[in-house]
Design a protein around this nucleic acid. Sequence first.
DNA 1: TATCATTGCATAGCATGCTGTTCAATTCCA
DNA 2: TGGAATTGAACAGCATGCTATGCAATGATA
Lengths: 152, 152
Amino acid sequence: MTSFKTRSAGYLANHVARLFARELAEAVRPLGLAPAQFMTLLELWRQDGLTQKDLVARLDVEQATMAATLARMERDELIERRPDQSDARARRIQLTARARSLEEPALAAARSVNARALAGFSEAERDVFLAGLRRVVGALSRTAELDQPSDL
Amino acid sequence: MTSFKTRSAGYLANHVARLFARELAEAVRPLGLAPAQFMTLLELWRQDGLTQKDLVARLDVEQATMAATLARMERDELIERRPDQSDARARRIQLTARARSLEEPALAAARSVNARALAGFSEAERDVFLAGLRRVVGALSRTAELDQPSDL
DNA sequence: TATCATTGCATAGCATGCTGTTCAATTCCA
DNA sequence: TGGAATTGAACAGCATGCTATGCAATGATA
């Protein structure tokens, strides 16, 4: 392990993610948002009225994690939860006007962070890099799936 | 934002890091280790007797974060803290025999996760990918440095 | 249709990260 | 040399992740 730090994909990915999180947190803090709230809003801006279960599937986090994030978003008046018409267990997540108004500035902040992170990359390099990240997501997600009892 | 999820470096980095963390956590749990403890051990296996300040600099986390991780490691009998001979404020972090004995199995577990993550990559692709991660670390770390009042 | 399995969420408990604050030991300097 | 600034750590408070549980509403089925 002379330098696990510069040769391990996992170590580097963790470091890169922490750096991105710091930058994004700072960038959206003025808007009253935290990183996980921003990620959740990305889905809700795309399609409002999703259930917690939908968000869990789309963001690939555990149900309990999403429940906590939604509780904080409700507290901060970014969302409201309304009873689902056909299933009394589920609740529909609705954006507030405030949350809708944050779409443009929040996306601009996030784009700015991405731009700084990839500043030294040519367009081709950036594409290869992003494709690499997607491949790793695929590889590790697949791993998890194989662990599942699948069916039978 | 048709698919910020597949086009944003920050989003992908966060996802990749979470997937790595899940896999690593599962891989080292049988050894009684958690991810952050493993990262800390990586430095201590390399050089024992570091101070908290040294670890903070090498792992790029906040001092308070490291203090908490070291507290859990002490609780779990992975380290001992001894007074520094020349500075009464500092404490030297010493590995226990148990922690030393975990080096081989823990590294093997981590390598296995990295191997699965990069399974589809050729050696050249892997090198380019890791170089990309290092470049982003450099870019975002530099950003932070520029925020500092530097000196003057 | 009464019962059992599944499903959608809420909660509790814990690991990690971060920011902010406080304190005591050291260092600097006027 | 005595007070001010710096430095190494601890602590409090909070955001996110995860696992494990518990519960009420649904669904499936004998």
